[in-house]
Amino acid sequence: MLPSNAFANSGVQVSRIGFGAMGLNGSFGALEEKEYIEALLRSFELGVTFVDTARAYGTSEETIGKALKEWNGPRPFIATKVKPWGKGGWGSPIPVTEAFPPGSIRQSVEASLQALQVEALDLIQMHQYWGIWDDEPYWLEELIRLKEEGMVRHIGVSIPDHRHDMAISLVRSGHIQSVQTILNIFDPLALDNLAPLCEKHGVALIARCVLDEGGLTGLLRENTIFGDRDFRNGYFDAGPRTEYLARVEKLKEFVPAYANSLTALAIKYALHYPAVTTAIISMQVKSYAEENIAALLEEPLPEEVFDQLFKQHRWIRNFYQKKYWR
C-alpha cells in the first residue's frame, strides 16, 4: 500500500504521489486515449488515490471521466482547476477581472463536473493564481459559495511559476485548503517558508514539476528535440542546456546508493518532508506510472543525503522566463 497523507484538515487520506494529468492533452507527446486510460487505471491499481487536472488541459477531464467509469475500486480524490476566461496569466500577472470575470468560475466548475461525470469536485483550484488578486476578493467568495452548495469540497490555488511566496498571505487567511507549487531538487525554496506555514495552518501542499518537466529523470540529451506542440520545446535551453545536463550529471553520484534511478531520487526528495501532502507527476504512460509509483516503496533518503541535495544542488532560475517572455 502506498504511503498517504491527510488532505488539509479533512481527514481524507490521499496517496503521497498523484497522477498529474496535464500530459493527457498531448503536452508531452500525443498518445491514443485508450493508452491514457490504461495509465490511469494502472495507477489506481497500484494505489494512487489523487488525480490533478485542469479545465484548460484539453480533453483531460473527459478522459479521466471515462477512466472512472471503468474503475471498480474506491473513487480517487479528483482535483481540477478553473479555466481562465480568454487570455491566461502565465509569466506575468493578469487582473483577476480579466482572467476570471464574475460568474466564470461557476461556469468552469459546472463544465468540469459534466466532463468528469462526478457529483462534486474534491478540490477546485484557481489556475495561475497571482497574489494581487487578494485585493479583489469576489473570486474567493464565489469559490466559498460553490463549496457551501456542495459542488466542491475543498478550494485552493495553483501558483503559475516558481514564485511560491505569493500565496503566503492566503495560506494564513484560513480561506483555502490547498496550494499547488513548483518543488524539485533544483528549486526547493517552497520548503523554506510555504511548507511550514501550510503545515501550521492545516493547508495541503501539492508539489508539482517534481521531475522538472522530465529533465531530472535523465531523459535529456544534447541532441534531444521536442515537437512544436510539446511543452518542453525550448524549456531546457534557457539554462543553457549544457549547464542543465552538467547539473543532472552531478546527481548521478546518489544513484543507485540512495535511489534506484534519477527519477526515484527526485520523487523521494520532493516527498522528504511530511508537510508536502502529495507530489503530482505526469504519468500518462503506463510504464512511467509504474516507475514513479515504485519510488515510494524505496527507503526514504537519509537526512544527511537530503541535506546535501538541499544545500549543494539547488539551481534557482525561472525557465518560464524564456518560454513566456521571449
Rank of each mutant, 00 (worst) to 15 (best):
M1Q: 08
P3S: 10
N5L: 03
V14F: 11
V14R: 13
R16Q: 14
I17Q: 06
G18L: 13
M22D: 05
M22Y: 09
G23Q: 02
F28V: 07
K34Q: 14
Y36F: 13
Y36A: 03
I37N: 04
E38M: 02
E38Y: 00
L41G: 04
L41M: 08
L41P: 03
T49H: 07
R55I: 00
Y57A: 04
K66G: 02
K66S: 11
A67Y: 06
I78F: 04
A79G: 13
V82H: 01
K87N: 05
G88V: 09
W90R: 11
A99Q: 15
F100Y: 15
S104I: 02
I105S: 04
Q107A: 13
A111N: 12
S112K: 02
L113V: 09
A115C: 07
V118K: 01
V118T: 14
E119M: 02
I124W: 04
Q125P: 08
Q125H: 01
M126A: 07
G131P: 03
P137G: 08
W139T: 05
W139C: 03
I144G: 00
R145D: 10
G150F: 12
G150C: 11
V152A: 08
R153P: 01
G156C: 01
I159W: 13
I159Q: 11
I159H: 12
P160I: 03
D161M: 06
H162K: 12
R163Y: 12
D165N: 12
M166H: 11
A167Y: 12
L170R: 10
V171N: 10
S173L: 15
V179K: 09
N184M: 12
F186A: 06
P188Y: 02
L189G: 00
N193V: 15
E199D: 14
H201K: 14
R208S: 04
D212W: 10
G214S: 01
L216I: 02
N223M: 03
T224R: 04
T224A: 11
D228K: 13
N233C: 09
D237W: 02
A238H: 01
P240K: 07
L245A: 06
E249W: 01
K252Y: 00
V255E: 02
A257T: 11
A257E: 14
A259P: 04
K268A: 01
L271P: 04
Y273R: 11
V276T: 10
T278Y: 10
T278F: 07
A289W: 05
E290K: 12
E304Y: 14
F306I: 00
F310S: 06
R317N: 05
Y320R: 03
K322H: 12
W325H: 11
